[in-house]
Structures are given as structure tokens and as C-alpha cells.
Amino acid sequence: MNWQWFHRLGSPRWFYEKTGRWLPWLATLTAVLMSVGLIWGLAFAPVDFKQGNSFRIIYIHVPVSFLALAGYYIMAISGAVGYIWKMKLADMVMKSAAPIGAALTFLALVSGAIWGKPTWGTYWVWDARITSMLVLFFLYLGIMALQVSFTNQQQAASASTILALVGCANIPIIYKSVDIWNTLHQPATIKFTSAPSMHPDMFYPLLVMIVAMYCFYALVLILFTRAEIVNRERQTRWVQALNEGQ
């Protein structure tokens, strides 16, 4: 089997040049999808008969929450790739994924709180999903804190990968535990009003927004990684040539 592509993927320079060509396309795709999704969702989707217009924050909240969770696995997997195959690029992707994931988790919490006010009458409840999201936020912060406390970058990447992998094994356990905790304590009667089956007119814009958010995530991850590459490889000739060219 030809593994050349895999090893080439490990070269930061190759990645930098390749993604440089992809970026305009990806950015355009993201912008188009996001505008379509947002305008469709915010202006044309029918009004929810119970929540009125306030339900429209779903078009932000749900895609962001999806990516907040998926981002953790993306981070852990790229960390594992870097740890197992000693691939510098994967380490950089992992380092870049942590703050993005933390920001998305924070956004999910904030948009959920804003949605909670008109729906539940309060910004914060100790609901199972909200609590799990908060724990996920702390997991991200822990990884970032560990990442910055090492001066040796190789060590920082390996250590935070170990932590991220332990987190991977633990996230399902944490989610289930918080679920059980929630049923044990019988909180105030709060029901998620979003019906299990959404009307297609509401659902399609949501789908577009989820795809748009994945593209957005990829875009931001690539941009962060490129910045990281330039920062780490600033001593190399190709980065200096890049600098002089501008």
C-alpha cells in the first residue's frame, strides 16, 4: 500500500500550501451555507406554535452544540494520531482544536441560557444536558491549561493527548451519570418542548445550519492550525520566504 500521502500529510509545509489553495473555496461554501441556513431559518421557517419566534435560536444552538461535542473527539483523535505516529502536524491540529471547542461549548451554554429565559422562565437550570455541557467546557479548559503549562511542545502535546483520551473514555460515563443524577433528584418539571419529530419546514434549515457549522469549524480549525504552523516553523526557510514575499 502506498503511504506516501499519509506522510506528506504530516508535513506542515505541505499542509500550509495545500490549505492555502482550499481556503477561498471553503470560506465561500461556509458563507453561502450559513447565509442560506440563517435567512431560511430566521425569516422563512414557520413560527413554532408554542414558543413563538423564540425557538429560532435553535438554528444557532443545536449546530453549535453538535460541534462542541464533535470537536472534542476531533481534538482527541488528532492528538492520538500525533502521539502514535509522532506527527507534528496532528499535534498542532490538536492544540488548535482545544480553544475552538471551548469557545463552541461556551456559545452552546450561552445560547441555551438565552433560549431558556423565554421558554423556561430562567437562564439556568441544572438540567442533565446543560450540566454535561458545563462539564465538557471544564474538560476543554483543563486541556488548555495543561497545554500551556509545558514549555516543551512535544511534551505538551503528548500530555494533553493522554488527558483528552482519558476524557474520551469518560465523556459517555459523565453524560450517563449526569442523566441518572438528574432523574434521582427530580428537578422542577421541565420538559424539552422541541418535539421529537420536527416539521420538515423547520428541519431543513436546521440541517443546512448543521452542515454550515461543520464547514465553519473546518475553516476555523485550518486557520488556527496555519497560524500555529507559521508560529512554530518561523525559523525555517520556507516560512521566512513566505514572510519576505509579502
Binding site: V135, F138, L139, L141, G142, I143, A145, L146, S149, L163, V166, G167, N170, I173, I174, K176, S177, V178, I180, W181
Partner: peptide, 16 residues
């Protein structure tokens, strides 16, 4: 730092 990185993993144990 230990407290920061480990406390989230203590959540299930504390709950049960």
C-alpha cells in the same frame, strides 16, 4: 493544575 484537569473526571464518582 491537577485540580483543574481532574475534577471533571470526578463528576460520576461524586454523583453515585
Amino acid at each position: 493544575l491537577i485540580s483543574l484537569i481532574i475534577m471533571p473526571f470526578y463528576v460520576p464518582v461524586l454523583i453515585f
